[in-house]
Design a protein around this nucleic acid. Sequence first.
DNA 1: CACTCTGTTCGGTACTAGTTAACACCCTTG
DNA 2: CAAGGGTGTTAACTAGTACCGAACAGAGTG
Lengths: 217, 217
Amino acid sequence: MNNIGHRLKEVRTERGLSLRELARMASVSPSFLSQIENGKSQPSVATLYSFSKLLGVQIDDLFGPSEDDDIVPETGAQAHEITERSDFTNPSQVWNTSEYTNRISLIHPDHRAALDMAEGVKWQRLAATPEAGVNFMKISYAPGSTSTASGEMLTHEGYEYGYVLEGELEVTVGGEVFSLQAGQSLGFDSSIPHIFANRGDVVSTGIWFVHGVCSRK
Amino acid sequence: MNNIGHRLKEVRTERGLSLRELARMASVSPSFLSQIENGKSQPSVATLYSFSKLLGVQIDDLFGPSEDDDIVPETGAQAHEITERSDFTNPSQVWNTSEYTNRISLIHPDHRAALDMAEGVKWQRLAATPEAGVNFMKISYAPGSTSTASGEMLTHEGYEYGYVLEGELEVTVGGEVFSLQAGQSLGFDSSIPHIFANRGDVVSTGIWFVHGVCSRK
DNA sequence: CACTCTGTTCGGTACTAGTTAACACCCTTG
DNA sequence: CAAGGGTGTTAACTAGTACCGAACAGAGTG
């Protein structure tokens, strides 16, 4: 956090300015500027702002090199599927009553239970817990596929959360249409009519979480 | 110059965060945040920095009027993080009750609220819904990091579900230790003492879903 | 030598960042 | 209805620090 002083000195010398010069421009005392640069004191936002303007630098640039993490394409994890289709109204009940041996469910990609929900639409269960009305799954939409074959919107109790892994997924919730890219996420009240579609030309996958009425403790 | 408070409020509400929530994340008092937003006080650089990270906004964006629009063509998604740590007992309450403008929350990778939970451990919220005790997030464990600095196991009500995106994550639940690779997933009762650690030498990320006792409706 | 530039350090003070109240308001719940 | 959650706002106070002036050590000049 003191690198702000370090960065400040760096930029100042880059500009060929002396400490006193910059201090005068910013109307602070040279001593104070020195203290700042050496991490012995911290400027107020106002003086920091002055510095950034005087040096022609983004304030954020004074906080040191910004490091960011993120997202690596995910290597495809394939799974075995059970090709089965079911009529359902509430997705949170699809796998519901799972027999669980212990209170921990750990599933390898090769051993996920799977469902074909519609043409090109697959659901793979990611965990089986004793919780009722809760589903944690990986979904996959082939290009051109839609969550309901008929194209009608679905409504059910509970909430739904999603994170797009790859591809693009068009989400229609209520009146609104969003296009989710990899890395984007959403959450919404499932009682709002909704439907998903893959309008792109590559398969779209995501991590989805659906839970219905919360089963009381 | 007080527009910094104005902008702050603007961005905060955009993110669907309540004043108290943001205050808690930045570990300042709600009253102080209110004073800042109303131009009656000014934050220190440190707290300003926290805000910018928590809200996923450039510090400079907090000064001027919001003139910028979507940057983000295709450059891969990066997320902003914070430098903040919070005491918590139940992870499902960290971001809890957010004031939500509509019933749909859609979040871009660049705009995720984030928390540093422990050394090298980051949580990024993936959706803000009115649901209490529900958290949908992306977690990231730096090599060598552990979910609790002290190394003690956590216990809280509710259930927890996870999917590993990249890297390797060692999961200890109850007496058992598992090593999750990319693509593997799990679910378990959070009342079982648990702890996570990244024993590998690359960062480990995953999609996590934690919900406490399901409340209401 | 005196003079001028560089940046640094030591005390001190005036100010303010941040706190803990208590406040008013709106919703739900019982 | 009151009780209890949520929301944001304000007042009074204090501990800390942002910032100053002065006095410092060098390094060039001439």
